[in-house]
Design a protein around this nucleic acid. Structure first.
Lengths: 139, 139
DNA sequence: TGTAGGACCTCTAGTCACTAGAGGTTCAAG
DNA sequence: CTTGAACCTCTAGTGACTAGAGGTCCTACA
């Protein structure tokens, strides 16, 4: 091991500036440096970063990840907290899907109704401007 | 008409600072002022802001809205451009939904597998840390 | 051993679409 | 004429990075 930041980036799929950013906000601990002050990483850092990467892919936000990492370091405690973070996140995701589906339906209706002629016959601009035609309610 | 900004905000559901922000970035034109330099709005501004509001609800970004507004002011031109903005946006929305659905499935699996016991038996932290269990690919 | 050049470093500022706050002014009702 | 809610401008902060400037280090090859 003992790899430089670029190699860590290649292995985890996290960009180099992002890794430095994670260190800066304390999501990754400071790592040993060479004499010339370049970062060198070990196996633990790679695991931790892979965890972060995957959690971000799952759209967990940084604060949730911080908590999940803390929980993973205290195996004695109940998993109730990790559980509730995941459940909350699941509920958020389901809500987002519902919103996007109604958005998609409305966009489809708009595009279907567009006569592909001049703008005065095109429903798209008109529909967006007209609240009443629209079942979707704002965020 | 000739209403103050707070009334416009109430009518359109757009917050006061957001209206000022839209003016600042040129999405709304500068409006007449009272002698004391307070903004007063007419029917046109209300329509334009309602359009913006609804387009934002539909998750169009500001640049798209700027274009749609410009198109709506040139009714002679083909609606092809409005059409293609909407179609592009529809495709983006459908892609987002697909991503969120696979995310939701993975979260559901995680939550279901969680034994609700101690963290060493809880799959949530473990699953997030393990790339291979996961079909979902990053953004 | 010298050197080329790619990888690394820090620091600042920018992204998007707002939101929050400080500190001051104007408007309209009573 | 007074009160206080609504208005004003300006700056800075949000989240999670991303881009760029300007400089240093490491390593492979001649």
């Amino acid at each position: 091991m003992d790899i430089p930041i670029g190699e860590l980036a290649r292995r985890t799929g996290v960009k180099v500036p992002t890794i430095r950013y994670y260190e800066q906000i304390g999501l990754l601990p400071a790592t040993p440096r060479t004499e010339g002050r370049q970062r060198r990483y070990g196996r633990d850092a790679e695991k931790r970063l892979a965890f972060i990467r995957h959690a971000r892919d799952l759209s967990f936000d940084i604060e949730d990840i911080r908590q999940l990492l803390a929980l993973s370091e205290t195996p004695q405690r109940s998993c109730h907290e990790a559980d509730s973070i995941a459940i909350r996140h699941l509920a958020w995701t389901e809500e987002r899907i519902r919103q996007l589906e109604s958005l998609r339906d409305e966009l489809r209706r708009m595009v279907d109704e567009c006569g592909h002629g001049r703008i005065c016959e095109c429903r798209i601009v008109e529909v967006i401007g007209d609240h009443d035609l629209c079942a979707h309610e704002g965020h």
